[in-house]
Design a protein around this nucleic acid. Structure first.
Lengths: 241, 241
DNA sequence: CGTATCATTGAGCTTAGTCAAAAAGTGTGG
DNA sequence: CCACACTTTTTGACTAAGCTCAATGATACG
């Protein structure tokens, strides 16, 4: 199966099967009917306006869910990380386009009709799908709350926290961002320059440390949460410039 | 009739039963197990952080779904209009607080466990619930796209269009907004003053007409869509000041 | 008819967008 | 391995959109 379908060399296929069994994901019970596909950076996984015949789950890598506006601007409506289901639509067509961000992003796909039929006779599966939809709702709501923040600094701050949460499952204080500044900008609805400046600002204030351009280490979690620099006791620290 | 539970006076109850049968809504098939409640303006329908034991559907009036931030600012995550289902949560507690906006807002509520059990043995119902979740997703996405707009003028413009769409089902060009400028501001994540100024701007440019403070008549649909004033042929009209 | 809420308008200031350019990576082919 | 092209990231200067504070009109409601 090439881009579309991953090349049929057994090696890559088995490699992916391994991934599928290793990476826990919400549609685990459907592993048998999953098709695995690998995508290069920037490749479209599915396209806004085409028939929504497949449901997906991102296995490894990262992807962006975006819509293009009338004025040509792109908005990223969701960032997809390992374990995230996507491709659900209230209507018969996808409501957004999904593109791979990381090289070699692997995606599992499930024929929608097939799954729905299975769900008809399997209440447990039906509940799982419902749960998946609710999780997608809560992810969208999280982003809504980020977009609703006032200052760009707060947006970038909560973005870092969200990524840390989702990528390292809350464990470490270090996040390797898989996406470019442009992606972050279109996700937060600010300009690239502002993203960059906000990061430098946080860096200078000692709230984060950078290792290369894409690895962030969180130093002061509280400060990221509301934009205000805090001391160890969580008090707003007016000394920090 | 007071707020909490509708007093069991047969008059008010039958009045509401009428509403329930008249107003088409997505959980129609569950009318039998629905409880109807009426709320005064500003009253809480359900509260963030409390057990999410009920699913709801708004029958008449309007409500806001909001979260309060650490800094005390309120953000409105969704506006609920007749026919809109709400109260779904990925976890065991509501992720937002819902408050009535209009006087005498009527809401149908459904015990979640009961519905889920019914869905286990009724695949059709299970599909309907899924569809409801997907529709909620698409509504959130719509708002995400509005929040992602750059200028306040565009936000207010698409807000008016969205309300026109949802309230009058696309028919008329006149919308009676059920909410205050403050609600609009918290929904669009801009200040009240900016909402007001944007409306005056649109009014002065002849894009909309106002009848009182809360009734908007759309004059130039195209202009609302992208912020640019258009002539009858849809061309950007630089003459309009 | 008074009081509270809601809506509009003005003036000043801050934030972030735009345009422009430099610096730092990344990958490719010779 | 290096040179070159291209992308990504950062920084600077300028400008404008929108926030804040403040005050004045309108509306609704008891």
């Amino acid at each position: 199966m090439s881009t579309r379908a991953l090349p049929n060399s057994s090696s890559s296929k088995s490699h992916c099967r391994n991934l599928l069994t290793k990476q826990s994901h919400p549609l685990r019970s459907l592993d048998q009917i999953a098709a695995l596909t690998q995508f290069d950076r920037g490749r479209e996984i599915c396209t806004q306006g085409t028939p929504a015949d497949l449901w997906y789950c991102l296995i490894s890598g990262a992807a962006r869910r975006c819509v293009i506006r009338l004025d040509g601007r792109r908005q990223i409506v969701d960032l997809l990380l390992p374990g995230d289901p996507f491709g659900f639509s209230a209507f018969d067509e996808y409501d957004s386009t999904i593109e791979a961000i990381a090289a070699g992003t692997v995606v599992a796909s499930y024929p929608r009709r097939r799954v729905e039929t299975l769900a008809d006779s399997d209440p447990q599966l039906a509940r799982e799908i419902r749960q998946i939809a609710f999780i997608a709702l809560s992810r969208l709501q999280t982003q809504l709350l980020i977009l609703g923040r006032i200052t760009a600094l707060e947006k970038v701050g909560s973005f870092i926290l969200e990524m840390a949460e989702r990528l390292s499952a809350g464990k470490g204080n270090s996040v390797a961002l898989p996406m470019s500044r442009y992606d972050i900008a279109d996700y937060l609805a600010v300009s690239v320059e502002t993203v960059s400046r906000s990061l430098t600002n946080l860096k200078h204030r000692g709230v984060i440390k950078m290792a290369g351009a894409r690895t962030v280490r969180i130093v002061d979690r509280n400060a990221l949460e509301d934009g205000e620099p805090r001391d160890q006791l969580g008090r707003i620290d007016l000394a920090a410039a």
